[in-house]
Design a protein around this nucleic acid. Sequence first.
DNA 1: CTATCACCTATAGCATTGCTATATGAACTG
DNA 2: CAGTTCATATAGCAATGCTATAGGTGATAG
Lengths: 241, 241
Amino acid sequence: MSLDGQLPPKMRLLRAAAELLAKSAGASISTRQITQLAGVTAPTLYHHFGDKEGLFDAVVAAGFEEYVAGERDFAPSGNPLVDIRRMWDNHVQFGLNQPELYLVMFGNIRPESRPAIVADAEALMEEMLNKAAVAGQLNVQPREAARSILAANVGVTLMLIAEPAAERNLELSTMTRDAMIFAVSSEQATGAVPEDSGKSSVVVAAIALNAALQASHSDQLSNSELKLFLEWLHRISTSST
Amino acid sequence: MSLDGQLPPKMRLLRAAAELLAKSAGASISTRQITQLAGVTAPTLYHHFGDKEGLFDAVVAAGFEEYVAGERDFAPSGNPLVDIRRMWDNHVQFGLNQPELYLVMFGNIRPESRPAIVADAEALMEEMLNKAAVAGQLNVQPREAARSILAANVGVTLMLIAEPAAERNLELSTMTRDAMIFAVSSEQATGAVPEDSGKSSVVVAAIALNAALQASHSDQLSNSELKLFLEWLHRISTSST
DNA sequence: CTATCACCTATAGCATTGCTATATGAACTG
DNA sequence: CAGTTCATATAGCAATGCTATAGGTGATAG
């Protein structure tokens, strides 16, 4: 098991590191593992990358280029906001496809390299938001909007990565995505909290639901179900407690 | 330089680890550093914590209790959405005050411990959102809203931690915060959302009733009735439109 | 008071880690 | 050819996480 081929050792080291990084589920990997898989000895690594960190930075840089390529590789739809949605989804997908690499890029904080990468990702997002701003679709500075959206994007991706692949619910992503985009693209409230002092109780909520159900013909329940449902609602909403 | 005092070695180890973790700007710290600062030898560490990881888990657990305490220690304002804002701000502040600890808690992903912590933080947020749901202020399931808000909260905090303290602009936090809360709250004055505007009042009412029913065990329905009732409510409140 | 026993801590050392001082080969340049 | 530069290998160092073993301490039982 060695990545021999005729590739130059530098490439073999990069690939070996990337491969081990992808496989090792968060565990740390040793330079000896890397060099052995690359069919190379230690000094070669340090000659080319100076450092273990240097090698990982190179891996991250390569991964980032892949990320950027993904963020650019779709035809502009004409509507910047739609394109931003695609960028968001692509970001999430990249994180789920290469969780370990993503964690090194966005999860860890190595005071040197990370801000650079984040800044680049920000620039990418800002670039697209600029188009939206030109089209009069923004009500915030593109830079602020980009930072905000990217922050939420990273947070969602990290959360999705953290949970078992089986229970991953991408609705978390779309919901947060649309919330953020909506927030920067409409003339939304300034942050004042609506004063709603009336505390609803079970009864109030039941009455509201009762009225709403009868007003709109929801097709989530069959007719007989609906009848029984409404009867129960009535029982609840007329109870004194 | 040793944390002597009369504290038991276990405590001294915890404090030493926490102190070194806080000081070392992201760099890894050795067990020897810890034991030396604690005035203790290696086996003591492994006797009490089994592992370096174990010690760090203990530090994180302590930090998490502090976090939870901060999230609870304010008088409820009466308006759940206001309280959620405070939770958000408190979260960010915690991250900025103890960046290294925060990174271990929310930034790193150690497949074992992290999901547990995130789940607890989610529960905390969901608890508060339940009150909002009862008050009819939510148009999404409290759990989904909690996950979404927490994800954005983590993303923002990570981004703020990553940038130099000098240029930190907390407006990123408030802007994202209000965007998220606005998105999940039912008081959306405008229906200007591109695709699906605010949920119908049926859904809002159903969510409110659902939360209220689960909070207060009404005895208006039998157990079997209640079960079916809740199932229908769930169907209604999760219907897409 | 002694003996026992569980608990806690220390001495010393192992295997693995990241890394390097030095040497050897290859390849180009004059 | 000689010289210089680049690239890789041999061998080994200091630091790391961790442990096998033994010593010390206090409480409890006889």
